[in-house]
Amino acid sequence: NQASVVANQLIPISTALTLVMMRSEVVTPVGIPAEDIPRLVSMTVNRAVPLGTTLMPDMVKGYA
């Protein structure tokens, strides 16, 4: 089972991601792979991401 990136807090729309905002967790459905966390830092989300939500590729500008 692959770990995915999960929001560690509410991430408001257009917020630049930082390490403290994300954690890795094995979830269903599978989202962005946890090993991509370093790549996600400073990318922005294009929607509000509630606490505990799995980050999907279409939620992060420039990721997909």
Score class of each variant (00 low, 15 high):
N1I: 15
N1Y: 15
N1H: 12
N1E: 15
N1R: 05
N1K: 08
N1P: 15
Q2K: 08
Q2H: 11
Q2C: 12
Q2D: 15
Q2N: 14
Q2I: 13
Q2M: 14
Q2E: 15
Q2P: 15
Q2R: 06
A3N: 08
A3W: 07
A3P: 13
S4I: 02
S4C: 06
S4V: 01
S4T: 04
S4G: 04
S4Q: 01
S4F: 03
V5S: 02
V5T: 07
V5N: 02
V5Q: 01
V5A: 12
V5L: 02
V5M: 02
V6P: 01
V6E: 02
V6G: 00
V6F: 01
V6M: 04
A7P: 01
A7M: 04
A7K: 01
A7N: 01
A7E: 00
A7G: 03
A7V: 07
N8C: 06
N8R: 10
N8L: 05
N8K: 09
N8I: 05
Q9T: 15
Q9D: 08
Q9I: 10
Q9Y: 10
Q9W: 07
L10M: 10
L10T: 10
L10Y: 15
L10K: 11
L10V: 10
L10S: 12
L10P: 12
L10W: 13
I11V: 06
I11L: 07
I11Q: 01
I11P: 01
I11N: 01
I11T: 01
P12N: 09
P12M: 07
P12S: 06
P12Y: 05
P12Q: 10
P12K: 07
P12R: 07
I13A: 14
I13D: 14
I13R: 12
I13S: 12
I13N: 13
S14V: 05
S14R: 12
S14N: 15
S14Y: 15
S14C: 13
T15H: 07
T15C: 06
T15G: 04
T15M: 08
T15Q: 10
T15N: 04
T15K: 05
T15S: 13
T15I: 07
T15P: 01
A16G: 07
A16E: 09
A16Y: 08
A16V: 12
L17Q: 00
L17R: 00
L17T: 00
L17W: 03
L17Y: 00
L17P: 01
L17E: 00
L17I: 08
L17M: 07
T18H: 04
T18C: 05
T18I: 05
L19K: 11
L19Q: 07
L19P: 06
L19D: 04
L19I: 06
V20N: 11
V20H: 14
V20Y: 15
V20L: 12
V20G: 12
V20M: 15
M21C: 04
M21G: 01
M21E: 00
M21A: 05
M21Y: 04
M21T: 02
M21H: 08
M22W: 03
M22Q: 00
M22H: 00
M22T: 00
M22F: 05
M22C: 03
M22Y: 03
M22P: 00
R23H: 05
R23C: 05
R23Q: 04
R23G: 07
R23L: 04
S24I: 08
S24L: 05
S24Y: 06
S24H: 13
S24F: 05
S24P: 12
S24Q: 13
S24N: 05
E25M: 10
E25L: 11
E25A: 13
E25C: 08
E25I: 06
E25T: 09
E25K: 07
E25V: 09
V26Q: 12
V26T: 10
V26A: 13
V26F: 12
V26C: 12
V26K: 07
V26L: 14
V26E: 15
V27A: 06
V27C: 06
V27Y: 02
V27T: 11
V27M: 06
V27N: 03
V27I: 07
V27S: 05
T28Y: 09
T28Q: 11
T28L: 09
T28M: 10
T28C: 15
P29Q: 05
P29V: 06
P29A: 04
P29W: 04
P29D: 05
P29M: 04
P29L: 04
V30W: 13
V30H: 15
V30K: 07
V30L: 14
V30T: 10
V30C: 07
V30I: 14
V30N: 12
G31P: 01
G31I: 02
G31M: 02
G31Y: 02
I32D: 00
I32M: 03
I32A: 01
I32K: 01
I32R: 01
I32G: 02
I32F: 02
I32E: 01
P33Q: 07
P33L: 11
P33S: 12
P33G: 05
P33I: 09
P33H: 08
P33R: 08
A34P: 06
A34K: 06
A34H: 07
A34Q: 06
A34M: 09
E35T: 13
D36Y: 12
D36E: 15
D36W: 09
D36K: 10
I37H: 02
I37D: 02
I37L: 13
I37W: 03
I37V: 06
I37S: 04
I37K: 05
I37R: 07
I37C: 05
P38M: 13
P38H: 09
P38T: 12
P38V: 13
P38R: 08
R39V: 11
R39W: 14
R39K: 14
L40E: 00
L40Q: 00
L40W: 03
L40A: 00
L40P: 00
L40C: 03
L40N: 00
L40V: 05
L40H: 00
L40Y: 02
L40D: 00
V41A: 05
V41R: 05
V41N: 03
V41G: 00
V41Y: 04
V41H: 01
S42W: 11
S42G: 14
S42A: 13
S42H: 13
S42P: 00
M43R: 07
M43V: 04
M43C: 10
M43I: 03
M43P: 00
M43A: 06
M43F: 15
M43W: 07
T44P: 06
T44L: 14
T44I: 12
T44M: 13
V45I: 07
V45E: 01
V45H: 00
V45S: 05
V45W: 01
V45P: 01
N46L: 14
N46Q: 09
N46Y: 11
N46D: 08
R47Q: 12
R47L: 06
R47P: 02
R47K: 12
R47I: 09
R47E: 09
R47D: 05
R47Y: 08
A48Q: 14
A48E: 13
A48L: 14
A48R: 14
A48G: 08
A48I: 12
A48S: 15
A48C: 12
V49F: 03
V49K: 00
V49W: 03
V49N: 02
V49T: 04
V49M: 04
P50V: 06
P50D: 15
P50E: 13
P50Q: 11
P50W: 08
P50K: 13
P50Y: 12
L51C: 10
L51V: 13
L51I: 15
L51N: 14
L51M: 15
G52K: 04
G52P: 01
G52T: 00
G52H: 13
G52W: 04
G52Q: 01
T53M: 12
T53I: 10
T53G: 11
T53Y: 13
T53P: 00
T53D: 13
T53N: 11
T53R: 10
T53Q: 13
T54G: 02
T54D: 01
T54N: 02
T54F: 03
L55P: 01
L55H: 02
L55I: 14
L55N: 01
L55G: 02
L55Q: 00
L55Y: 01
M56G: 05
M56W: 05
M56R: 12
M56D: 04
M56Q: 13
M56S: 07
M56K: 10
P57T: 06
P57F: 06
P57C: 07
P57V: 06
P57N: 05
P57M: 07
D58P: 12
D58F: 11
D58V: 08
D58A: 10
D58K: 08
D58G: 11
D58Q: 10
D58L: 11
M59Q: 05
M59R: 01
M59W: 12
M59V: 08
M59L: 05
M59E: 02
V60M: 05
V60K: 01
V60T: 00
V60Y: 02
V60E: 02
V60N: 01
K61V: 15
K61Y: 11
K61L: 15
K61T: 14
K61S: 12
K61E: 13
G62Y: 09
G62I: 04
G62M: 07
G62E: 09
G62P: 05
G62A: 11
G62H: 10
G62W: 08
G62N: 10
Y63D: 03
Y63F: 14
Y63T: 03
Y63C: 04
Y63K: 03
Y63Q: 04
A64H: 13
A64V: 11
A64Y: 05
